[in-house]
Design a protein around this nucleic acid. Structure first.
Length: 425
DNA sequence: TCTGGGGTCCTAGGACCC
DNA sequence: TCTGGGGTCCTAGGACCC
């Protein structure tokens, strides 16, 4: 049977998560900040209306936010991750084929049939998510993922459609595409927009009709696929199972600049430990480790330093102490005194399933550490991250993140459950 | 003072081989 | 003056996404 795609997209997701536990904020301007309280990464409609751009550094709007009574939150991924899982559960229950595309989006594959009403199905989905989880969503429907994305924008923006817009076999197709700026098309970013603009291509309809050879030459096959998708020819299939990871990164900007090697060591040990846990969660082992250090990229270029080092591991491993030792060796050779470091990170690559590669006959094996790693993960799973951790990750954490406006882990920590108070009068 | 983090895919170019 | 050609593999960098 022929299929169409539906995109289910949570509205202003992080803001909606915060509002769930602070309903008084439902009509107030709200923003959520990135790690380190750096940039604005989610805005309520009221905050958008006040002109706060996506990605704006917080320090630039701090005074304005205070004047306008904008409610500000540090990001709280424990909360957002849990609510995301609940939204995805509701979708699963509807028994459609689905792809979890990101923390706040999922694609569904819907059958095309004359005696079946897609719009009322989508409306029902939307209502269930509102009722069971409390998060508002928009749903766009189209013959390709790219068109479903465009339909989703219409669903979100135009109140008259009540959160659901169907672009599959729609007579409005070209009108909608004409009104969609090219940089709002999925896969067209800043650079492609500039290139297209120089060719006189400014909206999605013009892109749909663009010359294929030119697109292939200047936007590569990536661009050619987008053009086909705009023409209703689906090139991007529904990925029902998540693909195995090819790399795992743990990196952070520091709450304040760090100069001492000892502080960097703490950070590097902490990032390596975290990366190792992620590796084990996915039953993977790494064949190589990359460590990088960076000073503030917006600061004075004369005193800037960015460097990284990749080293192969003697054999694929997910052993925390092996990864820490390797990362610290990199740090030793990368570190230069006198710089104000702002960021560091560990990247694990050459990933393979656990136990997949043959062990070396001569290299030291980490096999005997497996029970220790398993025990460590179990305890931290049960009692919370970092209940047991490697020494030297530091108690004072000079390098730790700023999170001045964080809400509670309402749904994933017994200590932080919301309290409901009632009294009988 | 203060500018996120974690990913993917594609291409060009260098190293190396016969 | 003239300095092969074709193939593979790897990596760095660019572009994009949420």
């Amino acid at each position: 049977m022929k299929k169409v795609f539906a995109l289910v997209d949570c509205n202003n997701f992080y803001v909606s998560c915060e509002r769930l536990f602070r309903p008084a904020l439902n009509i107030q301007p709200v923003v959520v900040l990135s790690n380190n309280d750096g940039c604005v990464i989610a805005r309520s409609n009221e905050a958008k209306a006040l002109g706060i751009p996506m990605g704006e550094p917080y320090f630039k709007i701090k005074a304005f936010a205070r004047r306008q009574n904008i409610h500000v939150f540090s990001s709280n991924y424990a909360l957002y991750g849990d609510l995301s899982a609940r939204v995805m559960d509701v979708l699963h229950q509807m028994e459609a084929e689905m792809e979890v595309y990101s923390i706040d989006e999922a694609f569904l594959s819907l059958p095309v049939s004359r005696n079946w009403n897609r719009i009322s199905y989508a409306a029902e989905l939307r209502e269930r998510i509102r009722k069971y989880v409390g998060i508002p969503v928009s749903i766009g429907i189209g013959p390709s993922k790219t068109l479903a994305k465009i339909a989703g924008r219409v669903a979100k923006k135009e109140g008259r459609y009540q959160g659901v817009f169907d672009l599959a076999d729609s007579s409005q197709m070209d009108d909608v595409l004409r009104q969609t700026e090219v940089n709002d098309v999925w896969g067209i970013g800043k650079r492609f927009t500039e290139k297209l603009g120089r060719q006189g291509i400014h909206n999605a309809l013009e892109l749909k009709r663009a010359n294929d050879a030119w697109i292939r030459k200047h936007l590569t096959v990536v661009g050619a696929r987008i053009v086909m998708e705009l023409n209703g020819i689906s090139c991007l299939p529904l990925e029902k199972a998540p693909a195995a990871k090819k790399s795992i990164v743990t990196s952070r900007s520091f709450g304040q600049p760090v100069t001492a090697l000892s502080d960097l060591r703490e950070a590097v040990i902490s990032f390596s430990s975290r990366a190792a846990v992620k590796l084990r969660e996915q039953n993977l082992e790494a064949g190589a480790l990359h460590l990088f250090l960076a000073t503030n990229r917006f600061g004075d270029q004369a005193v800037s330093y960015f460097n990284g080092q990749t080293v192969p591991l003697p054999h694929p491993t997910s052993d925390t102490s092996m990864l820490i030792t390797t990362a610290l060796r990199c740090l030793q050779s990368l570190y230069k005194a006198g710089y104000r470091y702002q960021k560091a990170g560990v990247l694990l690559s050459a990933l393979s399933p656990q136990g997949y590669k043959q062990q070396s006959l001569f290299a030291p094996t980490t096999e005997e550490n497996k029970p220790l790693m398993t025990a460590l993960d179990r305890i931290n799973d049960k009692w919370g991250q970092d209940t047991i951790r490697y020494g030297l990750t530091g108690a004072h954490k000079l390098w730790g993140m700023r999170q001045s406006y964080k809400s509670s882990a309402y749904t994933s920590s017994w200590q932080e459950l919301p309290l409901v108070k009632a009294s009988l009068v």
